[in-house]
Nucleic acid binder design. Structure first.
Lengths: 185, 185
DNA sequence: TGAGGCATGTAAGAAGTTACATGATTTG
DNA sequence: CAAATCATGTAACTTCTTACATGCCTCA
């Protein structure tokens, strides 16, 4: 039930509505840690309220409900964080594609690798700006430092992804050193 | 339907039974790309056979069925590989935990970070040996080179994970700059 | 022959996706 | 007031997990 704990983690920073949580997931978690749609988030919040992990602290204009984490929610989050899982569960479609690159002809693999490199490069730029923003703040109090640490892990993963793709492209080249020779079999 | 394509990718290398595919997923995909249990893999293979993407090429001792990819399966795999998805779908429980580290007290966060670093270090060692094994082979023909490229992406991701954890631990220290002073409360 | 691992499977339920639906507010 | 966007929700379906079930094969 990782979505539940992702939401508890976001609510740990302060109350938010389903809509706001959806945006936060999209902006901060989706790319490297956890993907979820609003159609899963809304019902999950209802269930979490039933379970006493969150509570509605405000009802707004168009049925908008602002949720806050409860003490039980904080306990549940900490319990989950401190319980080391038997096996790490990972599902990454982009990485799966890279693992399956070898099933393609080099002429197909090359543009995919290039696209992967381009996307990683774009994400690196974006995260560098996020990091720069946090660095610019002088005092670096607790919350800001945490955000900076989080931006850093995303940045490093994307940088590794980019470096790998560039390296893999060069390996592909060395694999097919004379593309125009006549192939006898 | 990423599992389906992961299985097609594995079968692209040659025929295998459900049991063998389960082992291959555990050994090559699970850690960084895709996690699945045998209880999902067996029914999926049946469905794929119904859809004509794979076929049973051998029936062994205890109901063992060896599957091979069909031409339709190869086409489906290539179509999926070449279709760029709108948004990358990622779910990584380990990374989610790292993102939620900031919800913990530093005294709780530290051992978790350390455990993360240890796991990454162990995986780096393992993958370095895998890479060394592929490098040792002289001619590096196509398939072996592909395996080497795949090992490399896992290695670089884990290395980035490890480096980040070490860096984050030092940041945690600077956050609490005098850990050994006499503590009154 | 019994214990343990090999190998395959199923059933029930939880998690997640896709598509549809709806009303409120803002903007032109 | 029409169109776009905000904000929330549901229904049907697919995917995935957990737990259970079973028979084979090897080794002592």
């Amino acid at each position: 039930m990782s979505l539940r704990h992702a939401l508890l983690g976001l609510l740990h920073e302060g109350p938010a509505s389903g809509y706001e949580l959806t945006k936060q997931v999209e902006q901060t978690l989706e790319r490297s840690a956890w993907h979820a749609r609003h159609s899963q988030i809304y019902p999950e919040l209802t269930k979490m309220a039933d379970a006493g992990l969150v509570e509605v602290v405000e009802e707004g204009p168009r049925g908008r409900r602002t949720y806050a984490i409860t003490e039980a929610g904080r306990v549940a989050l900490r319990d989950w964080m401190m319980a080391t899982p038997a096996e790490p569960q990972v599902r990454s479609e982009p990485l799966l594609r890279m693992f399956l690159l070898s099933t393609l002809d080099p002429s197909d693999a090359r543009p995919l690798l290039q696209a992967h490199a381009d996307e990683a490069a774009a994400e690196v730029s974006r995260l560098e700006q996020v990091v720069a923003y946090y660095e610019a703040e002088q005092p670096l109090e607790r919350k800001r430092l945490n955000n900076r640490i989080l931006a850093e892990i995303g940045l490093r993963q994307e940088q590794a992804s980019y470096d790998w793709a560039v390296w893999a492209l060069s390996e592909l080249d060395s694999q097919k050193p004379a593309p125009s020779t006549v192939d006898g079999g």
